[in-house]
Design a protein around this nucleic acid. Structure first.
Lengths: 192, 192
DNA sequence: TCGGCCGGTTACTCTCCAGTAACCGAACTA
DNA sequence: TAGTTCGGTTACTGGAGAGTAACCGGCCGA
């Protein structure tokens, strides 16, 4: 079936995300993606320069989705405690609702290639930056950043555990569990 | 220079670890590894069945090194608090001293291929199992396991941050920071 | 009703790389 | 000193997959 160029492009993006998330960058061939979309390879190349460019576009888009979700959620909470839980809730909801995006970002294979890794790192660093102000104790910058990355690590590690292998989970419950742990931890950090 | 078969094998293992850690599974060709070792490809195939088998052997070995380190460290500590810190200390020392092994396991690209991913998952799950008894609160198994994976996530996330890009760091200091966060968090977990 | 636009296909090329066959030469050994 | 072992090399095969050239046919506007 013929589609208009924009419609086809959109469909290809969806399909490519699904295929890359499932198989990873190297294991997924352009033919696989084209097949999954019900077209042939040259169609893919009418819409995207190269495999790299396609993958990078997806990575960017998914990274943006995650950071937007997180900033939207955390800006509306007032105190640190609720920000922590709200942040985790947004994160786990993202993993729950947009699992392919999570897999693409942290699945990974994205962290291998230097250019891809840089994109993912940017997402993680931006999340960590958002966490930094939550850490009240008067500690060194290095210390603060390490703790911020501890929280991003929690989100990633727990997500991989609860959602890995397509398991079902309740994002809000997990956020409550993890938020409790994280906030309790942050409160107990002593001044240097 | 000619080496005896066992010596050559050992050298190839070291070299392959370095090359795979640096470039990842797909980006590293058997020629790259052979070159780095100062030999030609067929030599590699005299010692290892295939690229996969070589990579898997390395993955297994590195996983074993990490879990051994962790179990050795944690069994000797008595109370939960010191176990937490000692565990993190062991982890960060591993990352510090055996950075290539860490990169190979969590770099990743190892988590992409299903067989490779299973090996890494085994390492993470085993670490999480070791953490589970530290969680004193009377909570559900699911909850407990999620928190255990939060701690493994911390270790991984923080390691990536402090050691990423070949940066220098003091493992014991980082362990102190992170141990404080984790133990404080675990203490504040409430019964379900 | 005819021409050209456009979404699509078939059928390639070119490169890279895992894996291999066949051969080589130094040293030990009988 | 001839023969065998063994660590090594050169020079290939085979397949996979990124990217492309050239062609196709329905539909739309004139």
């Amino acid at each position: 079936m013929r589609l208009s160029a924009p419609a086809r492009r959109e469909q290809l993006i969806q399909t490519a995300l699904a295929v890359f998330a499932e198989k990873g960058y190297h294991e997924a061939s352009m033919n696989d993606i084209a097949d999954a979309a019900g077209v042939t390879k040259p169609v893919l190349y009418q819409h995207f320069e190269s495999k790299r460019e396609l993958y990078l576009a997806l990575l960017d888009e998914c990274g943006r989705r995650l950071t937007d979700t997180l900033t939207a959620a955390t800006t509306e909470a007032e105190d640190g405690r609720s920000q922590t839980e709200v942040g985790f809730r947004a994160y786990f909801r993202f993993v729950h609702d947009d699992f392919d995006a999570f897999r693409l970002l942290f699945g990974s294979g994205a962290r291998r290639d230097e250019e891809f890794a840089a994109t993912v790192r940017k997402v993680v660093d931006r999340s960590a930056e958002a966490i930094v102000p939550l850490i009240a104790a008067d500690i060194s910058d290095e210390h603060r950043r390490a703790l911020a990355h501890a929280l991003t690590g929690i989100a990633e590690g727990v997500s991989r555990h609860v959602a890995g292998g397509g398991k079902q989970f309740d994002p809000d419950t997990v956020a409550k569990w993890v938020g409790e742990l994280a906030w309790g931890g942050l409160r107990s950090v002593r001044r240097d």
